[in-house]
Nucleic acid binder design. Structure first.
Length: 194
DNA sequence: ACAAGGATCCTCT
DNA sequence: GAGGATCCTTGTT
């Protein structure tokens, strides 16, 4: 299966977020189709980039196509796709996926869970893909690690405000920067999407 | 050097 | 619906 090339990522983060729904993330034997994402921009008080580049967030400022992984609540490995030109500081959080390949591996990694509990929520995506902060900064358009493939595009997208960003300014909280595939069961929070 | 809090998940009620 | 887990990152002193 072909890789998505560098140009795919070199657009504004909202465009990349919309274009990511339906695509496939691969790592080893596991292939996941992206069903729900959130965009985090530069000049966005919800974004980790709001303090500029730090040791944790440096990959966000790389050229689009880098992987950005961070630890949340000391437990969860959160998987993001970096967007736009080098130095911008924007990324797309992968919130939910459906399993395309490697269901047995994913189930084992996810403690035997089934149904929506298997893979709706960003921490679960990191666990299912076996991605951790040690891989933050890797390229998604080079074979050998985590890679991104065309998959099949969503018929239509639902959108709504992002989850878990109460600390942000009200204008940023209201941005409709969460995108989900219409008709899929693989969405972490259905409320607020339309 | 310190204190605060988090782009979450699971379990229990 | 509520609360605890768990530890790193950040701004501040």
């Amino acid at each position: 299966m072909p890789l998505l090339g560098r140009d795919f990522f070199l657009r504004d983060v909202e465009s990349v977020a919309r274009a990511l729904v339906g695509r496939e993330l691969r790592h080893g034997r596991v292939s996941l189709r992206i069903t729900e994402v959130e965009a985090y921009g530069h000049d966005d008080t919800a974004s980790h980039a709001r303090f500029g580049s730090t040791s944790r967030t440096a990959p966000m400022f790389e050229e689009g196509g880098a992987l950005y992984v961070y630890l949340c609540y000391g437990i969860h490995q959160m998987v993001n796709v970096v967007a736009d030109e080098e130095g911008t500081g924007s990324a797309v959080l992968i919130r939910s996926c459906e399993v395309v390949r490697g269901l047995d591996v994913v189930r084992a990694r996810r403690g035997g869970k089934s149904g929506p509990a298997l893979l709706t929520g960003p921490g679960k995506v990191g666990q299912a893909l076996a991605v951790d902060v040690g891989q933050s900064g890797q390229r998604l358009d080079r074979r050998g690690g985590v890679t991104l493939h065309p998959g099949s595009l969503a018929r239509a997208l639902l959108c709504g405000p992002r989850i878990g960003i109460d600390y942000a300014d009200s204008a940023d909280r209201r941005r409709a920067w969460r995108f989900a595939m219409e008709g899929t069961a693989w969405v972490s929070h259905r409320a607020g999407l339309s």
